[in-house]
Design a protein around this nucleic acid. Structure first.
Lengths: 212, 212
DNA sequence: GTCTATACACTGATAGAC
DNA sequence: GTCTATCAGTGTATAGAC
């Protein structure tokens, strides 16, 4: 019998502090970039002394790595909303809705992802060549099947996917520009609804699927 | 009569070196971000000693400022390709073509712009609230007129513009991801043509304009 | 586990010889 | 106008008291 009970609570002090640090880091990396993000600022936003950040994570790169992986996981989970069994209209529709929801709920993660890709994917390259490529090929095959079956207009599946990714993520990555052109105010609930509707209307009709 | 002729050649040594530095800086800022871009690296890419970079530009921020302004000018010039006198189909068509051309010819500038916006537009905020807002409102008014005249489907003009900006710029900003999914190879001429065609087909048809 | 103090490396910018 | 040497400031990471 061990002299001391092993802590196995779901919310141990350790995991709780790590979570706080990772959330702070996501925000700081998004707003300042990897090089511009100082561990001091991450610590300040997390409400901890700088040394504690280094106690939970060996290096700044390790924090960054975790943040990027987290976002990739969330996105791949959303990608499963692209359920080909539902047919083109419903599958694309739900996927777009899900992507807009994520742009709204995870704007920092979206920006970190965008910066990671823009800098040549130094951390996430393996995943691009693995999981993402596999997923894209799979969905592409289904789209081509729908096209061959006359269910939708012919289009290169890759460009359709890029169109969905770009239009939805734009509302996160360029949120500052959008807010500025919106009179300096962030989007309201109804405006976010309008985003979904606009994107779905144009893309679905654009590939020959009646939107409603 | 002056004792010394004032150099007025179009390609003075000064302006030539400045141009080399700005081009190097655009690339370095795009790939490493503002904080990650070192003056040493900019100098190396430009093929000059670091001290010379500081001779031509007082600070790193001044170089960055110039790079961002340059890109903004290029984009606003492209924005004039959105010629409302041509009617909706031709105006949107030419604007999309122009934006894709720029994504291909200025991938670094596009990335610097994206990062600038993602970080809250610390340098370019005034231009967003000025020229860009004015241009967007002007084009938005024309789009609404076309909609009222039954020339195209109803859509919030802002979302249509964001759709064009996002889909086209995506091929620059996320070029690395796109190349990875393209077997690691950059797009060929014909693939870039296909990009234009795909975007125009979906968006034009999506707003009720027959593409060809 | 927490936090202060500090070591060590790097970067922006400049001085000053040529 | 060019370039070497250098300084001042900042940032990551750690040592060590509590």
């Amino acid at each position: 019998m061990p002299a001391k009970a092993i802590p196995f609570r779901k919310f141990s002090k350790r995991s709780q502090n790590q979570k706080v640090i990772l959330e702070a880091a996501e925000k700081v990396f998004a707003e300042a970039g990897f090089a511009g993000a100082t561990t001091q600022l991450i610590a300040d936003v997390a409400g901890l002394p700088k040394a504690n950040v280094h106690y939970y994570f060996k290096t700044k790169e390790e924090i960054y790595r975790r943040v990027v992986y987290n976002i990739f996981d969330i996105w791949m989970e959303a990608a499963s909303a692209f359920d080909t069994a539902l047919g083109p209209k419903e599958a694309l529709s739900r996927y777009i809705d899900k992507k807009v929801d994520l742009a709204r709920s995870h704007p920092y993660g979206s920006k970190v992802w965008a910066a990671e890709i823009m800098h040549g994917a130094p951390i996430i390259q393996d995943y691009l060549e693995g999981q993402l490529l596999e997923w894209s090929n799979d969905r592409g095959t289904h789209i081509e099947r729908w096209i061959a079956g006359g269910e939708m207009d012919p289009i290169d599946p890759a460009h359709l996917l890029y169109m969905i990714w770009s239009t939805t993520q734009h509302y996160a990555d360029f949120g500052h520009q959008i807010n500025t052109l919106n009179g300096g105010k962030p989007y309201s609930d109804s405006q976010w609804q309008a985003v979904k509707k606009s994107i779905k209307t144009v893309i679905l009709k654009g590939v020959g699927l009646s939107p409603d």
